[in-house]
């Protein structure tokens, strides 16, 4: 196999996500400014910051749905754009139409639609891949149910199955824990860790600082620009958190547990 033509400049192909000097916004409003960070493949990375800090916009820029005004995003060494088949996405739950009459199996099958192409119908293989993805998130017995009939945690797992059916290696998740009870949140986190061990990279926007501090490998602290990124223990210093949140947050270490709060 011929070697890939090397890009100019330092473009290490071993980053899952490589964001370089990205600026973006809506209608003159600046949502992101000079944002640069990297994420290694096979890690569970958190994206944290206050409301309006640009988390959702950043995920959309990485996904290629929102155009950056400046800078570029490389996904596994290639420019990020919607056709990038290695990127899966889970929107905020409140933006999903749960009342729509689609079954869980149909929702997961949508993960294949981008690959199938216009007009053509899903093949037996597409259905088998979707079913395997549903089994992976332990929802195979729910395949025939309507998506709106599932519990909150099951709905999130169905959307993750959709990304898995797409054979995505990088999963971008926008507030997956929002509105879940503690048990469902714990189960979902367990699934994230399993997927990480299988080599997937997960980039998770969340409000749950303590969860990222304790259970994630990597953190990006954002407030329009990147305050810090790296190991959560290095990122979540009181100084960084206060810069990001513009208020005083306490970081408590108790044994190997970390608590972050007001």
């Amino acid at each position: 196999m011929a070697a890939d033509p090397r890009r100019e400049g330092p473009a290490p192909p071993d980053w899952a996500v490589d964001v370089r000097g990205v600026a973006a916004g809506y209608n003159g409003h600046v949502a992101l400014d000079a944002v640069s960070f990297t994420i290694e493949p096979g890690c569970l990375a958190g994206l944290v910051g206050p409301n309006g800090s640009g988390k959702s916009t950043l995920l959309k820029v990485v996904l290629g749905l929102h155009k950056a005004r400046e800078g570029e995003v490389l996904i596994f060494g290639r420019p990020g754009r919607p056709e990038h088949e290695r990127v899966g996405y889970m929107p905020q739950a409140e933006l999903v139409d749960w009342a729509f009459p689609v079954s869980v199996a149909e929702v997961v099958l949508m993960g294949r639609y981008g690959k199938i192409g216009l007009v053509r119908r899903p093949s037996r293989e597409d259905r088998a891949i979707s079913m395997a993805a549903l089994e992976r998130v332990r929802l195979a017995d729910r395949a025939g149910r309507l998506i709106g009939e599932l519990s909150g945690g099951e709905q999130r797992r169905a959307l993750i199955a959709r990304a898995l059916a797409q054979h995505a290696d990088l999963l971008l998740l926008d507030e997956p824990f929002a509105g879940l009870d503690a048990t469902a949140q714990h189960d979902l986190l367990g699934l994230f860790q399993e997927l990480r061990h299988e080599g997937k990279t997960l980039f998770v926007a969340t409000h749950d600082l303590s969860c990222v501090a304790e259970d994630f490998d990597h953190a990006v602290l954002l407030n329009r620009r990147v305050i810090a990124f790296g190991r959560p223990g290095d990122v979540f210093t009181e100084e960084n958190l206060n810069t990001a949140f513009q208020r005083h947050l306490m970081v408590l270490h108790s044994g190997d547990k970390t608590f972050i709060g007001l």
């Binding site: 919607p82 689609v102 949508m110 639609y113």
Partner: peptide, 13 residues
Amino acid sequence: LFTSYDPTMAAAA
């Protein structure tokens, strides 16, 4: 079906 149900994801695909 896809664009009616989830236009964001459809665009991402």
